[in-house]
Design a protein around this nucleic acid. Sequence first.
DNA 1: CCGTATCCAAGAAGATACTG
DNA 2: CAGTATCTTCTTGGATACGG
Lengths: 117, 117
Amino acid sequence: MEPDVFDPNCGSREVLGLIADKWSALILYALQDRTLRHAELRRTVGGISQKMLTQTLRTLEADGIVHRVALPVVPPHVEYSLTPLGASLSPVLAEVCRWAEVHLPGVHAARERRTER
Amino acid sequence: MEPDVFDPNCGSREVLGLIADKWSALILYALQDRTLRHAELRRTVGGISQKMLTQTLRTLEADGIVHRVALPVVPPHVEYSLTPLGASLSPVLAEVCRWAEVHLPGVHAARERRTER
DNA sequence: CCGTATCCAAGAAGATACTG
DNA sequence: CAGTATCTTCTTGGATACGG
């Protein structure tokens, strides 16, 4: 039985949903090859609210993508890093982010071609 | 001025949003290196409604990712294919889809480790 | 065959305030 | 510092019916 993202009943569809949200890709991109604390992540990923950061991190953690370490000190010190599974996904999403950065002019050009009609 | 997906005011953020929806990645994946008609696309991408298919195609078209050709015949015959811009994005998203298919077991395993506690 | 229009439900996401 | 809780707003997406 082969996984098939085109099959709506296949679990890989949910996995796709994992990254088809507003923040996951950015967080994974930020965490590739480094460990960041909660506040650092929040500063890196511009515009994310604390709620969405925590929420997204929890989901990624539950799916084995992100590893969370809470040091029992006061004030709290929590570190986030990628699991091996996350490390395998990160470069793929980083590619998507890079594509967005590189082809931004192309998309803008296309949008303007539309509006000038 | 360099594009930066971490900057909430940078246009590349919108571009990311382009693909951070439920269907774009699947449609792009389905269209890589082939032309499909509306109904064929709908059959290929399992579970998509006609509304979401049309809506997503329109957005992709406006952003210069998908090319639409409507042949003036009765009954209508409409073909969708990728533009060069779309062709540059397609392999990146295909990677994401393939990752989802390949690492599905890993994600499931992580989820089960959680629930057994 | 392909597309549009409308209505409706569910969930995403932001703002704010509060706790160990 | 990190996280939770609650409330409200907005968007997404599905169902359905109709039109060229």
